[in-house]
């Protein structure tokens, strides 16, 4: 049986205490929320924190407040199974759908929204056991020097594989990061950095405490389309997230499009979004051009499921399907 490595376990009983512990321990500690990403990574010795800070006892992280008109604040420990339903499904259906496509039902019952945002980047050279990684001489992301995805590269190309991240970016959501020194509220898109190793702008002493969904505007439409091999279990090999505001006449007034799983962070398809403004999604020519523009920015690498050529080849088709859904 695969076993976790040994670690020191701490269970703070309040948010104040949690950020104090994280501040004291710094990079020596990792927060443990649902654990569905961290526990397998620890069993494979990809992550071996000396200290685990269990957040189960921190009630503040489960708080939910607000509504569609004022915007909704979800505690970072809100379980994905809760995001699938209720207020989120009614007001921000793309986020509910993204949550509902994560892994499997049992995992969604345990995994948290904050955890899914902070999901470690993934790579087929990295998401392997210690023995396997030793057999390739390790890789840049952990213990090695080379990025086997692109051996000449000086950066790591591990993939942002969160389903909820591109949606929150597209929605223009914000997140709160709290540390002993205070808290900051930043756009969700600013949480991510374009680097497979340092893929979050969160500091080790910070805790992601809440996600803030902006108010639902009249004419708002949202979409999330996930490409993967099977109907469950699998991480995305492409995620298309979009939010548009349509005029009463059906013209796009504003648009944001993000692609997931084709880079080390959610990729914003700004040219495609700009192109859509003032046009109508019901127009097939518009959809085709916007999907072409959207997938220009995708940088898939040969480090996920399915072949690279195929993923490149069908990205535009999937982007088009997502845009058609936005307009329908």
């Amino acid at each position: 049986m695969m076993r976790l490595p040994r670690f020191r376990y701490l269970a703070p009983a309040s948010l104040l205490e949690a950020v104090k512990v994280l501040g004291d321990l710094g990079p020596e500690a990792l927060p443990l929320a649902g654990g569905t990403d961290l526990v397998p990574n620890m069993k494979r010795r990809q992550q071996t924190p000396a200290n685990l800070v269990g957040l189960r006892g921190v009630a503040e992280l489960r708080a939910v407040s607000g509504d569609a008109a004022r915007g909704l604040t979800l505690g970072a420990m809100t379980r994905l199974a809760e995001v699938e339903r209720g207020a989120v499904a009614a007001g921000w259906p793309a986020l509910a759908r993204a949550a509902a496509t994560v892994a499997t039902p049992a995992i969604r019952n345990t995994a948290t929204l904050g955890g899914n945002l902070c999901l470690d980047t993934r790579c087929s050279y990295y998401d392997q056991t210690e023995e396997w990684r030793r057999s390739i001489g390790y890789c840049m992301k952990r213990e090695g020097e080379t990025c086997w995805v692109a051996p000449g590269s000086d950066r790591c190309w591990a993939v942002s594989s969160s389903d909820t991240a591109p949606v929150l970016c597209a929605l223009g959501a914000e997140v709160t990061l709290r540390s002993r020194g205070g808290e900051r509220r930043i756009p969700a898109a600013d949480l991510f950095a374009d680097d497979g190793i340092r893929h979050l702008t969160r500091r080790p002493d910070e805790l992601l405490t809440a996600v803030h969904l902006p108010p639902v505007e009249p004419g708002q439409r949202t979409v999330y389309l996930k490409l993967r091999r099977r109907g469950s279990f699998d991480f995305p090999v492409l995620g298309v997230a979009g939010r548009v505001r349509l005029s009463a006449g059906g013209t796009v007034e504003s648009a944001r499009i993000f692609l997931g799983a084709v880079g080390s962070r959610p990729q914003e398809a700004r040219a495609a979004a700009d192109f859509l403004v003032g046009r109508r999604l019901g127009d097939e020519e518009t959809v085709r051009e916007a999907s072409r523009l959207a997938t220009q920015i995708a940088k898939p690498m040969q480090n996920t499921d399915l072949t690279l050529g195929w993923r490149k080849g069908v990205a535009r088709e999937y982007a088009a399907r997502a845009l058609r859904e936005l307009g329908s």
Partner: peptide
């Protein structure tokens, strides 16, 4: 701040 309620080596 209150003490960490539970911890172990």
């Amino acid at each position: 701040a209150p003490l960490v309620t539970l911890q172990s080596g």
